[in-house]
Design a protein around this nucleic acid. Structure first.
Length: 573
DNA sequence: GCCGTTTTCGGCCCGACTGTTTTCAGTCG
């Protein structure tokens, strides 16, 4: 039975929670949490790595013991220590810890005093006012517990970056207009451009007596004020999004921005470096003894620990610190590096605008070329093309190119990859196209072996260029289908094919870990809007975000090239 | 449980806010 990294990580997280409730060493608990995070961010399944004979104890934060435990999970599907710990405590107790404001100590206290071991029992205990009489608890804590239980019941998943983006921008503008406010910046995972955002961390500097805190909690969209302090406040917006605002002194702006941008794992790793240099980094600055020696800008903070500036998108403690030490940080791709879009639909199939309208919109955005890649007939619901209709569109493109200057329209297709790896249109017509994107739109439930084989066989067609949305995941909706992505990458390299980074905010795949893997293999990626509407070219921005998180440079991306250079790369081997 | 230019033991990031306290523990990020 295949065991995926997520399942390994979940067991470690669960064990960490239970050990914490039992009062185990906080450092031991942290070791399990760190290991969970490491496993989760591996580009390949640990199971595969073990099958290939790799030594997991060389991974950061994973020693002999944890490597053994990963192996146990992968081989047996179980972790005996977790089962034993679940018997000793009560396995549901870790659910209680998911409530904000309820940590291991309180879970333990409530459990021991009242025998509570589920959210439901906790709710009943709080409703009958049994919590407020416990030592160290009071009426407010009891009320908060009740509120958080209710909120948890209708809480959704982490919202997508594209959903949070407009909310953040409005709030940023609102705060910037408050009297006495100087700088406003949204830090946190938003600034790291993570594909989903848990909450917003906003940082401001201001003149004395600026009413910004009051104005913040008085913002129209605020649903509830959770915390209101001199320098830190927290609110919940009507959208359910939590927003933390911190006021920082001007001289500490850089240190605070650095601190609040995270990630937590990155910050901890850099603080350890600082410690070795006898320095202390906190949100106010870099301290040598009691003297602040830096902190006005982020660059200063990096300088003090002997590192070059690390872009926020890379700050995940996934090798960026080592790369920075060696002066080997990538020069990340930027939006303006993109010169064309290689995945576009028109109203001939399921797009909303005509070929001409899409072309003109792309031209206005400054794109030099636009590949029109409508669906093939297997996607009947999208009125996919057969050979005849595709040829008709190709003629239309010829006429449009003759008529419209300033942008080149490329003839293309998003052809379906059938279950057996064949393509949905004849090779004859495909070979006449400038660009062929092949995608999977059905039969997601094949085994890993068959799905991998299917994709590689599709790439055997000499007219195939780019694998569209390679793993099929939809953020918060559908996981990736089983696929040996590393094998697919190797096959693409062999055949002179490429993979797409689909920039639709629901897709954003290749995932960043896979982008990095592709880069390490020397496999280039196409960042494509998969535009179905004139405004969808805006998606390229989110594609760039994901590419930057995946360490990609302009040279790693196909469509940073002029059409004449790109054409050479599309020539099959 | 991990880790090592302070290396096989003894450390492990650091500060704000809240609530329950009368000086601090718990939690969070």
């Amino acid at each position: 039975m295949p065991i995926h990294n997520k399942q390994v990580a979940e067991k470690f997280h669960r064990l960490a929670d239970l050990l914490e409730i039992q009062g185990a060493s906080p450092f031991r608990v942290r070791a399990y949490r760190t290991a969970a995070q490491t496993v989760e961010s591996l580009p390949r399944d640990a199971q595969e790595m073990l099958e290939d004979g790799e030594d997991l104890s060389t991974l950061p934060g994973i020693g002999a013991d944890l490597a053994g435990k990963i192996e146990e999970i992968v081989k047996t599907g179980e972790l005996s220590l977790l089962e034993e710990t679940e018997r000793q405590t009560t396995s549901e107790l870790s659910d209680l810890m998911k409530l904000p404001g309820v940590g291991p100590k309180r879970v333990k206290a409530i459990h021991e005093a009242l025998g509570v071991h589920s959210i439901r029992q906790l709710q009943q205990a709080a409703e009958s006012h049994k919590i407020r009489h416990l030592e160290g608890f009071g009426g407010k804590t009891e009320e908060k517990i009740l509120r958080e239980i209710e909120r948890q019941q209708d809480r959704q998943q982490r919202p997508k970056l594209s959903e949070v983006d407009p909310i953040a921008r409005s709030l940023e503008n609102y705060l910037a207009r408050v009297d006495g406010v100087k700088k406003v910046v949204v830090a946190g995972s938003f600034r790291r451009r993570k594909e989903t955002v848990g909450d917003l961390d906003i940082l401001i500097t201001r003149r004395k007596n600026s009413p910004v805190m009051d104005r913040f909690v008085g913002y129209d969209e605020v649903d509830e004020v959770v915390e209101l302090g001199e320098t830190r406040s927290t609110v919940i917006l009507q959208s359910g999004l939590q927003v933390d605002l911190s006021v920082v002194p001007e001289v500490s702006y850089g240190a605070a921005l650095y601190y609040f941008t995270g990630s937590k794992e990155h910050n901890i790793a850099v603080r350890k470096i600082a410690q070795k240099k006898n320095l202390k980094i906190n949100e106010y600055g870099v301290l040598k003894g009691d003297d602040r020696i830096a902190g006005t800008t982020e660059e200063e903070v990096f300088e003090q620990v002997g590192l070059p500036f690390i872009p926020p998108e890379l700050r995940e403690n996934r090798g960026e610190i080592e790369a920075a030490k060696k002066g080997a940080l990538p020069k990340l791709i930027e939006r303006n590096d993109l010169r064309g879009n290689l995945h576009t639909h028109t109203s001939d199939t399921d797009g909303k605008y005509t070929l001409r309208e899409m072309a003109e919109s792309a031209k206005e955005l400054g794109l030099e070329y636009l590949a029109v890649t409508d669906h093939s007939k297997a996607v009947a619901i999208a009125k996919g093309f057969d050979e005849k209709r595709l040829r008709k569109q190709m003629e239309k493109i010829d006429r449009l190119n003759a008529e419209v200057g300033g942008i080149r329209i490329l003839k293309g297709i998003e052809v379906d990859i059938m279950e057996d790896g064949s393509l949905d249109l004849e090779d004859g017509v495909l070979s006449e196209l400038d660009i062929v994107v092949g995608s999977i739109h059905g039969k997601f439930d094949l085994s890993r072996e068959r799905q991998t084989d299917r994709v590689i066989r599709a790439m055997d067609h000499t007219c195939f260029h780019i694998l569209g949305h390679p793993t099929g995941r939809l953020i918060n909706e559908r996981g990736p289908y089983p696929l040996d992505i590393e094998n697919v990458m190797d096959a693409a390299l062999d055949r002179g094919c490429y993979l797409e980074l689909n920039a639709q905010p629901d897709r954003l795949e290749l995932h960043y870990a896979h982008c990095k893997l592709a880069k390490e293999k020397g496999l280039k990626v196409a960042i494509s809007a998969d535009a179905h509407s004139k405004t969808d070219f805006e998606f390229l921005r989110f594609g760039i975000d994901q590419a930057r998180r995946g360490w990609l440079e302009a040279d790693d991306v196909l469509n940073t090239r002029s059409w004449s250079d790109l054409k050479k790369l599309l020539r099959r081997r």
